[in-house]
Simulated scan of single mutants.
Amino acid sequence: MESVIITGGTGLIGTALTRLLLDRGYKVIVLTRRAEKGTNPSVTYAHWDIEQQTIDIEAIQRADYIIHLAGANVGEKRWTTSRKQEILESRTRSSVLLYKALQENPNKVKKVISASATGFYGEYTGHTFTETDLPANDYLANTVVAWEKSISQVTSLGKKLVIFRTGIALSRDGGALKEFYKPLRFGFATILGSGDQYISWIHLQDLVRLYFNAIVNDQLEGVYNAVAPKPVRHKELVLSMAKAAKGNSYVTSYVPAFALKLALGEMSVEVLKSVYVSSQKIQDTGFQFSYPTITEAMEQLFSK
């Protein structure tokens, strides 16, 4: 039975991924600052501390794969100078810690699979972004570039590396969709800005299937966009959610861009940004999305 380390394993994606790996017969090792005992013998918790640059070496030596999801939540707090530094260092320093552990200790890790973000790309102006495009030159893009560079060091150790530039992951349990849904509890389908900005999204189930696919498909290597085949405008995403959740029992409302800028500061740029990203490269490997359209995704998410 093979073992998979997950950093950031207690978050939205990590929790869903753990369930999938267990269903498929893998053991999971969750790296955490507060190691604990779980009830499932196939899940163990091992200690690491990014600030202190310490890690459980035995866990590294037991692992066949590493899935690296760790990083401070980009949308959780206002982007102060210190918060921006925390977002950056939580990604780069954790990658460096993994690299050093692999470099300095005998291990059997075959492949490292790392999260990244579509924040790498710039504003949509009619061009569909692919993995070969150059990064934008803004805070989030610069962060993503540094993030990818920091984990790319593992290839010098002979490890295969897969990087998933992930769009908005849709789940009822957390992330952006949970925030979009909050006004809908009171009957309001709330659209941010004009609503015309493109959102490159992916259903959480498809995202964790992509990570699993990176384990079982030995040929998978390099950078891939982890987005559904059909990006949609923000307005369409919100109204699709409203229809799936409430039928016709909702009222459309708007939050103007200037109000978002006052409330969110610099982070409002990302909320209002239009990003249209291609999934063709991962589809060309044979991967098939279970939820390729926003209608299918929302109907599944709100069918319960």
Rank of each mutant, 00 (worst) to 15 (best):
M1Y: 07
S3R: 12
V4N: 06
I6V: 13
G8A: 06
T10C: 04
L12V: 08
L12C: 07
I13P: 05
A16S: 15
L17E: 00
T18L: 00
T18N: 06
R19M: 12
D23N: 14
V28A: 06
I29G: 06
R34E: 10
G38Y: 00
P41W: 11
V43M: 10
T44W: 00
Y45V: 09
A46F: 03
H47M: 11
H47R: 08
W48Y: 02
W48M: 02
I50H: 02
E51K: 10
T54F: 03
D56V: 08
A59L: 09
Q61W: 07
D64G: 15
Y65D: 03
A70I: 06
G71R: 07
A72I: 03
N73S: 12
N73R: 08
V74L: 14
V74K: 00
V74P: 06
K77S: 05
W79M: 12
T80M: 05
K84F: 01
K84D: 00
K84H: 01
E89V: 13
R91V: 00
S95C: 15
L98D: 08
K100S: 12
K100L: 12
K100R: 13
K100V: 07
A101N: 08
A101F: 14
A101H: 11
L102M: 14
Q103D: 14
P106V: 11
K108A: 13
V109F: 01
V109N: 04
V109M: 08
K111W: 05
I113F: 00
I113Y: 05
T118G: 02
G119N: 02
E123A: 10
T125G: 14
T128R: 15
T130Y: 09
D133M: 04
K149N: 10
I151E: 03
I151F: 07
S156F: 08
L157V: 11
G158F: 12
T166M: 08
S171I: 07
S171T: 06
R172N: 12
L177E: 10
L177S: 12
F180D: 04
F180K: 07
Y181V: 15
P183Y: 01
L184E: 08
G187K: 05
I191F: 01
G195V: 06
G195E: 02
Y198A: 02
I199L: 11
S200K: 01
W201D: 01
I202V: 14
H203Q: 01
L204W: 03
Q205T: 15
V208G: 06
R209F: 00
F212A: 11
A214Q: 09
E221V: 03
G222W: 10
N225M: 01
V227L: 04
V227R: 02
V232N: 13
R233M: 15
H234S: 06
L239D: 04
L239F: 03
S240M: 02
K246Q: 08
G247Q: 04
N248F: 15
Y250D: 00
S253A: 11
S253Q: 10
A257Y: 06
A257E: 12
L260M: 13
L262N: 07
L262F: 12
L262H: 02
M267S: 12
S268N: 09
V269I: 11
E270M: 09
V271R: 00
V275F: 00
V277L: 09
S278F: 08
Q280E: 13
Q283C: 09
D284N: 15
T285C: 11
S290D: 14
Y291M: 06
T293V: 13
E296A: 15
A297I: 10
M298F: 07
S303H: 14
